[in-house]
Design a protein around this nucleic acid. Structure first.
Length: 479
RNA sequence: GGCCCCAUCGUCUAGCGGUUAGGACACCGGGUUUUCAUCCCGGCAACAGGGGUUCGAUUCCCCUUGGGGUCACCA
């Protein structure tokens, strides 16, 4: 079978993790089979549409490397890929259904239908339009909704993720195919488009499982062979059990990218949210995912979104990334003060920072003192009230003595890491002091930060002039 | 409310009749002789409940409970 999958969002907002996961899995299925992945825009609701959403969706997919072979902005064999540009198509299929007696014009006003619905609600029964199906509907002139004339019956079908599913005839109803504004409903348009675009696997969220029997009924009326169906469980919010939404702090994918989460980390994390290969592997490269992914191993229950785990995965990817690649990826995250610094210097700073980064945006806060003098009030603050327990025991006079001695050693050093280590360690013995005291004192003088990368490397990168100057400044502050 | 789906540590999960129920995140402790972090070692922590089936159920079946979805001229 020729495998073609699609991701078919409506342009009503940004893509969050839930939507992206559906896209990722569809993409993986296509890439694994050497098939195509299609992006189609379901823009049939003008009221809910949001300006810029299409671009945002496209950018989100691209930023994660989920490239599509056909889509609204790149065209393809079955263009156009915006449903709003395929309206004639749906009308034509609507006519066919009218001709075969499987569609009819809905004569009721929205208010009348609403009254039926409320009546059903009062009786605590599910609402079925077909209980009110008109005997002799008017001719469809496009101003009324066009409804599907269903043929209720029981269904059982196979879902690649959920397994065998079944329902009774009571869930089948006469749903609207084409709205009175001329736009099709999702229920109609996606079936037509999937068929015309030769989509082999329909992979989508759990919310569609209830309407699947209706689609099955429509496929039969249309004489269309149904594609393979796969239903993804929802991704749930971190604290609640509700479907993940913006309100749960579900950031848009581009927000994560902006904060310096790496695409490959995002992909690995999202893929393992509801899927695993049965081994104890926790992290996957994109290549591995393409090889190992299978719909059959997708979890049937919903998964909670835990950002802490994403953060861990991201840190993992950062740490195993070669420095050159990491440097490339970090371009947008340097603080403003770094603009004058050389690439070579920044690369060295990044080398020191790399092992403690959770995401790239942290470079901004962590690297400040490499580019500007430490804040004097921060330095005095740290000396007066050190977080370090050892340093607490030392008075100012002693601090001055230690820093003075350290300054002398540094002045004599060639500022290679080895030499610095050797000299300062020797100083430790000579002054009979603990590293927790001497090194902390020096570290604060040169960084003004409560936490910073390892001392010798930091001194080495900052260089002799800067280091000595900062030590002098600190000595001045301690007077 | 009807219909449908789901159910292992706090979280993501392995398990597909016999296991000391495994891993990871988070958390807690220890180590890597400066801080933070990394890394390593250790610890805490789960089969929702009740019936069956079976020599034996986390695993298969049923019920209960709990959670979710759906019942739009939204997708």
């Amino acid at each position: 079978m020729k495998v073609r999958t699609r991701f078919a969002p409506s342009p009503t907002g940004a893509l969050h993790v839930g939507g992206i996961r559906t896209a990722l899995f569809a993409w993986l299925v296509a890439r694994q089979a050497g098939g195509q992945f299609v992006l189609r825009l379901e823009d049939t609701d003008k009221k809910r549409e949001q300006a810029g959403a299409e671009q945002q969706i496209e950018a989100s997919l691209r930023s994660l490397g989920l490239d599509y072979d056909e889509g609204p902005d790149i065209g393809g064999r079955f263009a156009p890929y915006r449903q709003s540009e395929r309206l004639d198509n749906y009308k034509e299929w609507g006519r066919k259904l009218i001709d075969s007696g499987r569609a009819y014009a809905d004569p009721y006003t929205p208010e009348e239908v609403q009254a039926f619905r409320e009546e059903a609600q009062r009786a605590k029964r599910p609402f079925l339009y077909r209980n009110h199906r008109p005997d002799s509907p008017p001719e469809w002139d496009g101003s009324q909704p066009l409804r599907f004339k269903s043929e209720p019956k029981a269904y059982q079908w196979h879902d690649e993720v959920m397994g065998d599913l079944s329902t009774g005839p009571e869930v089948i109803d006469d749903f609207i195919l084409i709205k009175s504004d001329g736009y099709p409903t999702y229920n109609f348009s996606h079936i037509i488009d999937d068929a015309e675009m030769e989509i082999s696997h329909v992979i989508r969220g759990q919310e569609f499982i209830a309407s699947t029997p209706n689609y099955l009924n429509l496929y039969e009326a249309l004489g269309i062979e149904r594609p393979v169906l796969a239903t993804m469980p929802h991704i749930l919010g971190p604290d609640g059990n509700k479907k993940l939404s913006k309100r749960d702090g579900a950031k848009d994918v581009l927000d994560y990218i902006k904060d310096g989460y790496l695409p490959e980390a995002l992909v690995s994390f999202i893929a393992t949210l509801g899927w695993n290969d049965g081994t104890e592997q926790e992290i996957f490269t994109v290549k591995e995912l393409v090889e190992k992914f299978s719909l059959a191993r997708v979890q049937r229950s919903g998964a909670r979104f835990d950002e802490r785990r994403l953060t861990w995965v991201n840190g993992h990817f950062i740490r195993q990334m070669p420095l050159d690649k990491l440097y490339e990826a970090s371009a947008a995250y340097w603080p403003a003060q770094a603009s004058g610094a050389s690439a070579d210097y920044k690369r060295k700073v990044l080398g020191l920072l790399a092992e403690r980064l959770k995401f790239l945006k942290e470079i901004q806060e962590l690297s400040g003192f490499f580019f500007t003098e430490p804040d004097t009030s921060a330095v005095t603050g740290l000396y007066n009230d050190p977080s370090d327990k050892q340093l607490k025991k030392v008075d100012k006079a002693k601090l001055r003595e230690l820093l003075g001695a350290a300054r002398q050693e540094l002045a004599a050093s060639d500022f290679t890491e080895e030499d610095l280590a050797q000299r300062l360690n020797a100083l430790l013995d000579r002054l009979e002091t603990k590293p927790g005291i001497l090194f902390a004192a020096v570290r604060i003088a040169i960084s003004g930060a409560p936490a910073s990368p390892q001392l010798f490397g930091t001194l080495c990168v900052l260089g002799k002039d800067t280091s000595l100057r900062r030590l002098d400044n600190a000595l001045e502050l301690l007077k």
